[in-house]
Nucleic acid binder design. Structure first.
Lengths: 270, 270
DNA sequence: GCAGCTGTATCGTCTTGCAATACAGAAGAT
DNA sequence: ATCTTCTGTATTGCAAGACGATACAGCTGC
C-alpha cells in the first residue's frame, strides 16, 4: 500500500515561481488527474460521490471527468454493477514509461542475467524522493501479490533500495528526506528512529551495498545496490531479495553480493 | 510496438448517443490525455512541437498541458537535456489498475503456481477488442525486452491468447474484430488471411486451447487458454510460451497443456 | 550572423468548464 | 407497504478560465 505521494519533478519548482497558479497551469486538468488518482486510496470500486470526495471536486465535476475518462478507456465500470475502476488504457502509458526510460532499457537484460545466477527475486526500483518505485520485477518461486506488481513502492527510509540510494546523497538531502518521511513501521523490526537510520546509511556507504532484514516484510532479507547516473547521482537501486527461512545473512551476502554489485556497476553510468 | 489503439469501454457508446460532444464531455481533458498519449508513437523524448503535432493540439495548448502534467509528475524532462518523457507518477496508476482488477488478483497466485510447474514463461493478458494486453508476466530464463513489460499488447487475430478469446465469442463478433484488425504479419509465418484465422479459431474451439507457432516471434511456441467471466464471456487469456529450439510441438502440448487448462479453469468464474 | 530549433511567458477574447438542479432506478430501513 | 438515501445520468445559465496568437531568450547547425 503506498504511503507517500509523488511530488512534482525535483527541480521543477525553481523554474516557475508558483507552479500551480500561473497562467500556464490548467486547473481542469489538475482536477481530472485528481479524479484518476482517487483510486490510489481505494481498495474497491468507487462511486461518483466517493471519487468526488477523494479528489476534492464537486460531484458534477467528477461526473464530467469520469464521463470523459470513460469514453477514452481510462476508467471503466466495475464488472459487478456498481462503481468505477481504472481502465486498461492506463497500461498503455505504463508501457510508454518503461519503454522510454533509458535506465529500464539498460537494466532489464542485466537483471535477467543476474536473476539467472542468483535464482532469487531481483528488482529495479526508481528513486522518487520519499519512496522507491518498483519498475522491473523478476520473480523467484515464492511470492506475495505485491512483490509481483510494477508500480508498487516502498519508503526510502526503511528499504534496502532506499538506503542504497540515500548512501550516495549529500547529508543535508538525506536529513531532509528523513524529516519529511512518514516513518511508520511495517514490521516490529522496521527501523524508524533517525539516528538508527543514519547508522544504516553509514554502514551502506562503507560497504557499497545495503542489507535489510525484516524491514518491509517479516522473514525477508534484501540487499540493495545504488545505480548512478552520468553525474554520479543515485537515480535507482537494484535489489536481491530472499527468505530468512532459507538463508543466513552471511550466506546470503557471500553468495549474492558480488554478482549484484557487478550488475549495479554495469547499469550505472558513472 | 503497439499496433492498435484502445477504444472506449465496450458498450459505452450505447449509453450516450454521441459520447464526445455532449455537455458532459470535457474537451480540455481529452486534449490533455492526447498529450500524454503522444508518447505511444515515440521512441525517444519528445519536444513540445512534436507533442503538439502527435496530439493534434495547438503548441500553446501542449505547452500548458505539459506544464501542468509536469507539475504533477506525469511528465518529466528527459535526462539528457532535450525533450520530455513520461513521468514516474504514471506507475501509481498502473498499480491502481492491477490492484483493483479482480481478475488480476485472482489470477496471480494461480499463475505463480503454474509457472513453478511448467518452468516456462507464463502470462495473463486482458482482452481489449483488437488486441490483448499483458497484465501479469512471469518470466523464464531467456527473455527479450518486450516479453517482460506490463502493458505490452499483441493483436487478437494472430496470438494464442487472442485465438483463445475469439474462440469463445459469437461468430459475428469474431468477423467484426477480424475485419477491423490491421492484419500485418509479424513474421513470415503470421496467419493474416481471414479464412486461415477462422480455421485456427475453430481448431481452438474444438481443443479448448490455442496453439500458436512463430506468430509474433520467430522460434516461439505459445499455448493460450480462455478465461471466462461469470456470464461465460471471455475476458482474458493465460499463456504458456516456450522456444521451438527446446520443444517439439507435441512435447510442449503434452507437458504443459493439462496444467495450464486447469489453471485457466481455476481463474474463470463460469 | 542568419535560420530554425528549443522551452518559456503574457494577455485579451469568447469558448467551455462549473455547479446547481432534477430525475429514474435500486437498496435498505422501518 | 412507503420513506430515505444511495446509485448514475442529464440539462442549463453564467462567468471562470482555457485558447492560441504573439514574443523572447538560449541553443545548434549552417
Amino acid at each position: 500500500m503506498p504511503r507517500n505521494t509523488t511530488r512534482a519533478e525535483p527541480g521543477f519548482r525553481e523554474l516557475t515561481e508558483n507552479n500551480r497558479s500561473g497562467p500556464l497551469f490548467v486547473r481542469s486538468l489538475e482536477k481530472a488527474m485528481q479524479v484518476l488518482a482517487a483510486f490510489h486510496h481505494a481498495d474497491a470500486p468507487l462511486s461518483l460521490s466517493e471519487i468526488a470526495a477523494q479528489a476534492n471536486v464537486d460531484r458534477s465535476t467528477a461526473q464530467r471527468m469520469v464521463h470523459t475518462l470513460r469514453s477514452m478507456g481510462y476508467i471503466r465500470r466495475a464488472g459487478d454493477g456498481r462503481g468505477f475502476v481504472p481502465g486498461i488504457r492506463l497500461l498503455d502509458h505504463t508501457l510508454d514509461y518503461l519503454r522510454l526510460d533509458p535506465l529500464v532499457r539498460r537494466a532489464t537484460p542485466v537483471l535477467q542475467e543476474l536473476r539467472k545466477e542468483v535464482r532469487e527475486r531481483v528488482d529495479l526500483s526508481l528513486f522518487d524522493d520519499l519512496r522507491v518505485v518498483y519498475a522491473v520485477r523478476l520473480q523467484s518461486k515464492r511470492q506475495t501479490f505485491y512483490t509481483t506488481l510494477v508500480g508498487h513502492s516502498v519508503p526510502s527510509f526503511c528499504s534496502s533500495g532506499g538506503w542504497a540510494i540515500l548512501s550516495r546523497l549529500p547529508d543535508d538531502r538525506v536529513r531532509d528526506i528523513l524529516d519529511r518521511s512518514d516513518r511508520r513501521p511495517f514490521t516490529p523490526h522496521t527501523v524508524t528512529q533517525i539516528p538508527a537510520i543514519l547508522d544504516k546509511i553509514a554502514e551502506t556507504r562503507a560497504n557499497g551495498y545495503a542489507l535489510s532484514l525484516n524491514q518491509i516484510l517479516l522473514g525477508e532479507i534484501a540487499a540493495g545496490f545504488p545505480v548512478l547516473d552520468a553525474n554520479g547521482d543515485p537515480v535507482a537501486a537494484i535489489h536481491v531479495a530472499g527468505s530468512l527461512a532459507e538463508w543466513t545473512p552471511e550466506d546470503f551476502v557471500n553468495r549474492n553480493i558480488p554478482l549484484a554489485l557487478e550488475a549495479a556497476r554495469a547499469i550505472s553510468q558513472y
